[in-house]
Every structure is written in C-alpha cells, then in structure tokens.
Write a protein that binds this DNA or RNA. Structure first.
Length: 421
RNA sequence: GUGGGCGUAGUUCAGCUGGUAGAGCCCUGGAUUGUGGAUCCAGUUGUCACGGGUUCGAAUCCCGUCGUCCACCCCA
C-alpha cells in the first residue's frame, strides 16, 4: 500500500474504538450530571488567538503549532488546546450578557507538532470543561472534584491531585522579580538550560531535574502570594478538605500556558511513564481581557483521552444495557432479501440486526457471528422460506428453536435486553 | 529540535561470525453436502521499509532517507 497515516496520528477502530466511545459516553454522562453543556468550536482558529493567549514564548507557539495560510492568506492554526477557543466563543456569542456562570464541556482532537512518544501524539484527544463567570474558589473545587469524579467512575480511587497557586498578574510579577534576583545569585550552580530560563521563564527552573539543590533554596510562589490570591488558595484548600478530595500542595507545579492565574492543578498517574499527567487545569482570570473583552474570571481542566485509555483495561465492565443482537445467516439472493425484510422489523423494534451477504458457508457465517459477539444467529434458507419461519440459534447456549416470521419480533421482545450484569 | 533501540507474511516474531526466507496466530478448503467457540489434516501468503555502498554473493556488514518505539525538551 502506498499511503500511511501521518506521523503521530492514529486510526481508531475495532475493539479499541468500541472502548473509546464507551469511555466518552461515561465521561460526558458525568459532565452532564454536573450541569455542563456541550460546546463545539472549530478545529482551526485564527493563529493569533493562540499566539496571544498561550504565550509568545511558550513551546506550543514557538514550535508546536500546525499553522497554515488559506487561499486568502489568512493565518490559521489547528487548535493545540481548547480553552482559548471556548472563551472566544463565549465572548463572540455575547454570553457574558446572560450573567451568572456558563458551564461548558467539550471533547475532540487537538494538534501539536511534537515528537511522538509514549502517550503523546500529534493529533490527540481531550475532554475538558470550563466554568466561566465567577472567581469563587468553590467553583475551582467543583472543577477539581469533577475531574476526579471522571477517574473515580472508572474505579481509580488513589490518583493524586497536585495543587498549586501561580498567583495573579500582580503578585506573580513581584514574585518573578524576586525569583530572578535569587537565580542570579545562584547562577554559577545552574545548568545551561536554567541560566537561559532565568531570563525567559524563571518558573521553569522548578521543572529542571539537574538543578535540584538550587531549587530547594529558591523562594516558592505560595509564600509570596498577594492577600487576595492567598485567601483564594486557602479557601480552595479548605473546601477540598471538606469535600474529602485528597490533594498534595506542590509549589513547584507550573503550568505551561501563560493565561493561568491562581489555581493550577494536575492529576498524575505514576504507571504512565514519562508522560504521566492524566489531566491538567486551573484558573485563567486573565484570558478574557486578553481577548479584548472585559475581565471575566474562569476555571477549567482538560483530560487526555489516550492516556486514560492506556490505563484502562481492554474490557470495561458494561454497566449500560445492550440490545439483543441478531446475525442473519443467508444462503442465496432470495434468502437475503427475505432476511433484510425481517432485519428491518427487528431494527424498528430497537434491536441490532446484521445481515451477512458474503454467501460463504454456514460455518463461516456462524464463526463470524460468534467472533463479532452476536447473541443470536437467524437462519433464513430455502426450508425456512417455504415454511415462513426462521431457525433461531442462541449463540451462547447453542440451543435452536424455530419461530415464524410473524412472531420473530415478539420473540425478541419477550427475551428483552441481554447483557445486564 | 536532540539522543538511543527497532523495521522480515495480514499479525506476532525467528533467521548464528554474509551463501539466496521460516514458525505460531489469522485466512482458505476438508474431516462435518445447512451449524460457531474444541481437535486433526491440507493449502495460500513476502519489493526482507526505501535508496546507495562493500562483496563472487547482503535480510545479515556500512552510509543515508523514511517510519516506529523509548527518552530529553515540553505537555494531555
């Protein structure tokens, strides 16, 4: 074959796709139970939207954006993240005039031109939520609890929440100045990268794995928060404790995107290897004004689909009910036409019906029915057409019965749904 | 963008210090002329990633490209 999928992308199919969509369904169920409503924004946006909000010097902007020009020369980019687009949509649609809090959830592909590795793709998928319109720390707690609920729903009880406050424009600025001074002091002990970071983004020094001894001597942001930020942080911690959400304060947690203020958090899973963040989020009170609107506070998170899939077992226990599935085994054209008519009746009654037109041997067709996991094989052959009945085979027990064409649907209805455990 | 491992059948892999390609699974047919999940028998499957070099001879050694995996940077 001549063509291959582009680097860092993947085909979702078969059992994996089944698992994927049932995971999506379970998550959106939780999001909806919190009253979040779905929002879908374009896959691409004007490049400036990301350049301005994510940060000129960020890795995303400097090397990871899929940027292109359309036929009119407009600079567009495939979205690398979805918080800015959601805020853009909020403002563009005038939702701030509705007052109160707008709660959205989204899911879909994001694009970053990174080097692929375990748990990292160029096209990857995120499910996230944004709560726009209040600076009340209670909603930060709601967001954190909501994201934890997602993992709890899949049976993860011991994932760790790492929490920090990165301050606001004001106190972070002051703190950064102070941090730079300290870094200058320790400059001889720093690695080359960290010397560079001292100027470009001093907070990143905390992420460095070599300058461990220096890090311990550096002032942490949590000790330099302004009163407002400090109060916000303390209230949030108190609410989380009351809700019984376990968390660890990590003053070294820094989020890569510029628009974060105050709350920053991450849910990590040690089993994942180098890319161990399952979910990241925080508050971004400065984003709306950056987009040219009024200042509007907001919090949100986004969770990586691929990474969740990776830690989930292949077979999820199906709590949702599945309809009985019938596989029609046919022998010739006449049989298949009759089978289509019968299959349609079953479908209108809400069952799944599949007609095998391959004309292969019975053996093959039955084999196919069982590997595809059908509950019943329905034989429609010469004999059956003459007697106006089908032979029904229960694929699990192997038992067979004959049922007239007329009674087929009612037979299935009486059996009801299967798959409830 | 940087570093390392790996590219052989649809798939998972074997193939020694160079001598002309193999196994399991899958698939197809049969034992069972209209009955799956078990067993047995038979059969098909290849640009050895691509391009160049060394050699009488390269899947094997060397170089380059591409892909893939892992790590760094960074992030979901």
């Amino acid at each position: 074959m001549k063509f291959k999928k582009p680097r860092g992308t993947q085909d979702l199919l078969g059992k994996y796709m089944e698992k994927w969509s049932s995971v999506e369904e379970r998550i959106t169920g939780i999001l909806r139970s919190y009253g979040y409503l779905e929002i879908r924004t374009p896959i691409f946006e004007v490049s400036d939207l990301f350049v301005r909000t994510v940060g000129e010097s960020s890795d995303i902007v400097t090397k990871e954006m899929y940027m292109f020009k359309d036929k009119k020369g407009r600079r567009l980019t495939l979205r690398p993240e979805n918080t800015a687009p959601v805020m853009r949509a909020y403002l563009e649609n005038g939702l701030q005039r509705q007052g109160g809090i707008s709660r959205f959830y989204y899911m879909g592909p994001m694009f970053r031109y990174d080097r692929p590795q375990a748990g990292r793709y160029r096209q990857f998928h995120q499910i996230g939520a944004e709560a726009i319109g209040t600076s009340n720390p209670a909603i930060d707690a709601e967001i954190i609890n909501l994201s934890m609920d997602i993992y709890r729903a899949f049976g993860f009880s011991s994932l760790q929440v790492r929490l920090n406050s990165v301050g606001c424009m004001k106190c972070r600025g002051e703190y950064m100045g102070f941090l730079r001074e300290k870094l200058e002091e320790y400059k001889p002990e720093l690695c080359d990268d960290c010397r560079q970071r001292t100027d470009t983004n001093p907070l990143r020094v905390f992420d460095c794995k070599t300058c461990v001894s220096v890090k311990e001597k550096l002032p942490t942001i949590t000790d330099h928060l302004c009163e407002e930020c400090n109060e916000h942080f303390e209230k949030l911690c108190a609410i989380l404790k009351q809700m019984g959400v376990d968390f660890v304060i990590d003053p070294l947690l820094v989020r890569g995107l510029d628009y974060y203020t105050k709350t920053a958090y991450e849910i990590v899973c040690p089993e994942l290897g180098a890319q161990n963040a399952l979910c990241g989020g925080g508050r971004y009170d400065g984003l709306a004004s950056e987009l040219g609107g009024v200042s509007i506070p907001a919090v949100g998170f986004s969770a990586g689909m691929e990474r969740l899939m990776q830690i989930l077992p292949d077979e999820l226990d199906k709590s949702e009910t599945t309809m009985t599935r019938a596989y029609f085994v046919v022998f010739d054209d006449k049989c298949s036409i009759q089978a289509m008519v019968l299959a349609d009746r079953l479908r209108s009654a809400g069952f799944v019906a599949y007609v095998d037109f391959s004309m292969r041997s019975i053996k093959k067709q039955l084999k196919s029915a069982s590997t595809r996991g059908y509950d019943y094989a329905v034989f429609v052959g010469q004999k059956e057409i003459e007697d106006k009945e089908v032979t029904l085979k229960n694929m699990e027990s192997g038992d067979q019965v004959t049922v007239s064409f007329e009674k087929l649907v009612s037979y299935f209805s009486e059996k009801g749904v299967v798959g409830i455990e």
